[in-house]
Design a protein around this nucleic acid. Structure first.
Lengths: 134, 134
DNA sequence: GTGCTTGCAAATCGTTTGCAATAGC
DNA sequence: GCTATTGCAAACGATTTGCAAGCAC
């Protein structure tokens, strides 16, 4: 994938094989994968990939703004290659995480002098599949 | 504290010494403590309190709606005895977590058929103390 | 007495660290 | 060639589990 390389270079990050693979995976799989999901998925094509490198890479990508680390659930961190402004909701039955769009303004009254840098909106609930099982 | 006992009984939870102490602590210390903070604070008055019981109790309180488990940061879970509707913001420099009020509606376009049950709004940024150190 | 709760010790497991080999400019 | 990066193995540490003793009703 060409896009991943451009994105990495745009941030001044050396586009190694491993970083390209991880970022390309996130860009093409919008399933909010966990570290383990990413690892299992890339392992077949990249047998030497280590968890260490994966952790390093994901930390690098999220701190440079190329990916989001979702902490909707304290049990696991999920990653999202879509860094546009959107919310996430999680079904407490099946555990699936979905994206949703934000509409309009979200007026907040932050503590005096607090500089807002990023915002995450998380919704817990039950998804339609779990509400009406077929 | 009387309030803690009433709250526990209202949920049909047996008000043991340990549960009363943890809930009373959360109600009177609105500092979004971590498990370790709670443990260190209660340990002096309750030397036999174990981490196991503390974990059990916090899980019980959050699943019964008497406390909130905050997952603003993937590194740690913090607990909040204030279960009213409010947002949380964290300073990425000093790590302090603050409450803030929500103003008005937060229109969201959830996936079709998704039943919204609870909502968390997290803001990252820099607090006034860290922006203008005295 | 019965079942729930507690708390110690051990197991578990996701993540980090140290460091030597390797890849990329 | 020099530095950044990778990946193995070991360390680490927070949380969970198993289970026996204690407590409440």
């Amino acid at each position: 994938m060409k896009e991943a390389q451009v994105l990495l270079e745009g941030k001044g990050i050396r586009p190694t094989q491993q970083r390209l693979a991880v970022l390309a995976y996130l860009l093409s799989h919008k399933i909010h994968p966990t570290v383990d999901t990413i690892y299992s998925s890339l392992q077949p094509q990249m047998p030497t990939l280590s968890k260490t490198t994966l952790y390093n890479t994901l930390k690098l990508l999220s701190s440079s703004g190329l990916a989001l680390a979702l902490t909707i659930d304290g049990d696991e961190i999920r990653f999202d290659g879509d860094t546009s402004d959107h919310g996430h909701c999680k079904c407490r039955l099946c555990g699936q995480v979905y994206d949703f769009e934000l509409r309009g303004d979200y007026p907040v009254e932050l503590p005096p002098g607090f500089r807002q840098e990023s915002t995450h909106l998380y919704v817990w609930g039950t998804c339609s599949d779990c509400l009406s099982p077929s």
